[in-house]
Design a protein around this nucleic acid. Structure first.
Lengths: 356, 356
DNA sequence: CTGAGAATTGTGAGCGCTAACATGGCGCTG
DNA sequence: CAGCGCCATGTTAGCGCTCACAATTCTCAG
């Protein structure tokens, strides 16, 4: 009696309606979970949908509703632990909320590349964009771009009027520095990240603030580019300094390195120079990459919850898309200090009940 | 005279047509790069498009052409270097070819999670799926799933009838093992990855083959789970063995660890046990993660070109989508041996012109 | 100068879906 | 039991685009 269309083409809503003996609109109501459908009809339609393997055509739906339910993500360097984890968090959160995400991975966050990425995403009708671009310049370029949809930054700083979410880098750096000072070090040296990274700046600022609060003089700053190699080079400089002043005149007994990868390089340089960690110089990192626990020695570092970061960014973005965004345009999440062997307490014998 | 619609709504093709004084179809031809359009008309339309900031609605296009130009990617553990790099390669290649990609990141590649991921992507009308799921079980589940579109696996092995691309793990392992044997080691021990990973198996097979070819007896196998911790534990076992037989009766002077992260753990265990690398035991890894160069000591390993891998997978997938797929259903890419300090030549003084 | 054939442009009909409105049946109040 | 209003369902009209075809113009040989 009723003929079931098969094979050649995917069934449409009309096919389901015909087989179930209702109108296509009723099918639409069942799928959409509309309340005013009798239980009987709903069951019948559901069964036919099952039977035919019907799946709603998202393009048609997007066309009719003028909503694509698609979000774009722009990220750089997704092979690094932080961005990769954040990206995964973003994607998972978006999927849970019923959105499709499409990520564009950039090699470098130039104005040009960013423009192209936004154009690409806009061409696909994304309703919003999450940008994981932790450079001042990139965020500025993004703000100037005037994208055709809401844009939320991750680790993009608070300066500009783009909404965003960040981890509290400043606080993390402060925690590490205070931890080292409390452990008995007279001061804490710092190997910073690249100057144009917002995260780098915030970490440096936190370190600086902790030293100031403790009334400790600030040693000269070294700078790397996040890579193990740059950390290694910084480590060589530091090691040279220690070895040149046997009496430890510089008070160089503790180093806060702005990320774990550079810390790895620093550790190697120290080891090669015959310096022991933490006995001669304590070292702390930032990020808590999975390898950090197995560094020689296991590294004290700051753990960041990248997954939450991604999740929060989607939450904020959807608020903007749905127009329910309230005053809050910037969220900040707290990090966690992970203490390991690389900063084991300094000379406990010499300072019985030291510090506070 | 001519009114330009502004503000409230995005311009449509009809708007452009009206302003340019042509039919909507002509606008479509200009955008589509159709040849039979006069230069004059083309220029006029192009200008209006520019002026109005018109952008083709991809949903309407998808509806009319029945092509979404969207691809799905299913990946697990994208925070690891390999999968993350592959994912980036896939996305970049797809974008170059004019496709939108959407990635689904799974925590675990269970049958259930895979099914759900495929359903999710199918619901969005993807035309094909790249699956980065290097487990035998996962690939089997995927093959049984009967997805509504072509599926290409990455590192999925050759066993099943799913097309795929892989790096030649077997060859890489063989290269490392031969490198160690050539360096004068009487045999090479192996810390393998999880048994259910295809990459793990292939690496073990390559190691085994190299030993067999060299007529060397195969030492017992140790197994980890890719994590630094598991490598550490394996390393402790190995170290115990070395220390228990001072005369190095077991010939345990070289270890091929199935990935760099575990190698890091092994190195730490050796160091803690007072063993020197490479003087006492040489260690080699696999993957060439960015940190490998800065391990204590810098690690000999096998570099894999993940970006090419991703690119190739897209090429293969598009061949299947466009129906031009020829006999070739499985591609294999060659890896590269990177020699560093962790396998420095063994006792060159004792064996002047040894090995070959 | 004319007609065939090519080049260029226009017209109409959907693609599969949802939104808005229209319809018919039921229970309830007065 | 008339009549109002609510519930369940059907009908109609697009969303913005491409495809197939029709119509128009142009080109050039004969």
């Amino acid at each position: 009696m009723i003929q079931i269309p098969d094979g050649s083409k995917a069934p449409t809503m009309a096919d389901v309606a015909r087989v179930a003996g209702v109108s296509h609109q009723t099918v639409s109501r069942v799928i959409g979970g509309h309340p005013n459908v009798s239980a009987k009809t709903r069951a019948a339609v559901t069964e036919v949908i099952e039977q035919l393997g019907y799946r709603r055509n998202s393009a048609a739906r997007a066309l009719a509703t003028r909503r694509t339910h698609t979000l774009g993500v722009i990220a750089v360097n997704t092979t690094l632990h932080g961005p990769a984890s954040t990206l995964a968090g973003v994607q998972e959160a978006a999927r849970e909320r019923g959105y499709l995400t499409s990520a564009v991975t950039l090699r470098a966050a130039t104005q040009e590349a960013l423009t192209e990425a936004v154009q690409h995403l806009a061409g696909w009708g994304v309703e919003g964009i999450v940008a994981i671009t932790p450079w001042r310049d990139a965020v500025r370029a993004l703000a100037a771009l005037d994208a055709p949809c809401p844009v939320v930054t991750v680790e993009g700083g608070h300066d500009l009027d783009l909404p965003g979410v960040s981890l509290d880098q400043d606080l993390g750096a402060r925690m590490v520095t205070e931890h080292l000072l409390t452990a008995g070090h007279s001061t804490v040296w710092h190997v910073a990240g690249p100057a144009d990274w917002l995260e780098s700046e915030a970490r440096t600022a936190g370190w600086r603030a902790a030293l100031r609060d403790a009334g400790v003089e600030e040693p000269p700053l070294l700078r790397g580019d996040w890579s193990p190699l740059s950390g290694y080079q910084a480590g060589q400089q530091l090691a040279g300094r220690v070895l040149a002043s046997p009496g430890q005149g510089d008070g160089l007994t503790a180093v806060f390195v702005a990320n774990d990868q550079m810390a790895l390089g620093v550790l190697r340089a120290f080891r090669e120079a015959g310096l022991h960690t933490p006995a001669d110089v304590a070292v702390a990192g930032f990020d808590d990459i999975p390898e950090a626990e197995f560094f020689p020695p296991p590294l004290t570092t700051v753990r960041q919850d990248f997954a939450s970061l991604g999740r929060s960014s989607i939450g904020l973005l959807l608020e903007h898309i749905e127009g329910t965004a309230e005053g809050t345009t910037h969220l900040t999440l707290a990090p966690e200090l992970i203490v390991r062997a690389s900063t084991a307490r300094r000379r406990p014998a010499e300072r019985p009940a030291a510090a506070g």
